[in-house]
């Protein structure tokens, strides 16, 4: 299977602060990949590097087979890009936005734009600066979808959106993915939304990543709860990937099975009684793996 995005040995620094060290991953064509990480882990930086808005310290990114630092116009025409904060030209009206962007794309689908935008019931002369964040997101989504791109890159599409607009966004993305051979690379703060959308995920934490299929991750990552009267402190290691204590309740997150975790805890001098596995949502698993802070 060919790759829509290929990141090879990517390193990036802001001054003395290292954002990535030797990042490597691929996003196969026709898949939906979610990039998850806490604030400040470099999700937007990665999107900016992929789109040629930032020159990495070293390494290489290929987007639709082209070097991200020098994406030719024809390749850019195949990429629908949603900037963080639903960036739009706020001095334009809805109709002016459509007229402006339609001039750049041969396969521009005017009906798709107006189908999405008309749902808001606003006049075509409505200026974007007078819209709510949700309404603006709908216009931006209309622009991206009307381009009929092969690759969608969405940087935190859920930012500032209420449940209704988020659901609308997800529905459109699912319909888009169903067209086949369409690739979506998405970052979001609303982790549970991605559970319903993505095929694979990339977790990014302190410059390192873990790439996994959603199904296999949810099957292999476990949360075990037990109760302990005292104050407990467990460091992360090969077995314990996350640890949380609230009152007497302890949660341990691990890729290992219950027996192995029990044995490992025993070896650390912790002897949990009545330890049991608890079902997790993707958000629980994300917190378990990444921690709250």
């Amino acid at each position: 299977m060919s790759s829509a995005i290929e990141v090879k040995h990517l390193c990036h620094q802001y001054g003395s602060r290292t954002i990535y060290r030797d990042l490597n991953f691929t996003v196969p064509t026709g898949t939906i990949c979610g990039l998850l990480g806490k604030n400040g882990q470099g999700k937007t930086t990665l999107v900016n590097i992929l789109m040629g808005f930032l020159k990495p310290t070293s390494g290489r990114c290929l987007v639709l087979g082209e070097d991200s630092c020098h994406l030719p116009p024809l390749t850019r025409a195949r990429i629908g890009l949603l900037h963080e904060g639903h960036l739009a030209y706020e001095f334009l009206t809805i109709a002016q936005t459509e007229r402006f962007f339609s001039g750049f794309y041969l396969g521009w689908e005017r009906e798709i734009f107006f189908d999405l935008v008309d749902k808001m019931g606003l006049s075509p002369d409505h200026r974007i600066c007078r819209m709510s964040c949700g309404q603006r997101s709908q216009v931006v989504l209309g622009v991206i979808m009307a381009q009929n791109p092969d690759l969608l890159i969405l940087d935190d599409y859920s930012m500032g959106l209420d449940a209704g607009y988020r659901r609308l966004f997800l529905d459109v993305l699912k319909d888009f993915a169903a067209l086949g051979d369409k690739t979506i690379f998405v970052t979001s703060h609303i982790v549970q939304d991605l559970e319903k959308l993505v095929d694979s995920m990339i977790f990014i934490d302190r410059g390192e990543i873990m790439q996994t299929e959603l199904d296999s991750f949810m099957k292999s990552f476990h949360r075990y709860d037990f109760e302990d009267g005292g104050e407990l402190s467990l460091d992360k290691d090969e077995v314990i990937r996350g640890f949380e204590q609230r009152g007497e309740r302890i949660s341990v997150y691990s890729f290992a099975d219950q027996e192995s975790v029990q044995f490992h805890l025993d070896s650390l001098g912790v002897h949990p009684e009545k330890m049991r596995e608890k079902k997790m949502s993707l958000e629980d698993a994300f917190i378990g793996l990444m921690g709250k802070y």
């Binding site: 900037h83 904060g85 960036l87 030209y89 706020e90 001095f91 750049f104």
Partner: peptide
């Protein structure tokens, strides 16, 4: 208007 929120990126992504 182009440099506020780095909106020029919208135009720079155009083909």
């Amino acid at each position: 208007p182009e440099i506020l929120q780095k909106r020029l990126r919208l135009s720079l992504h155009l083909p």
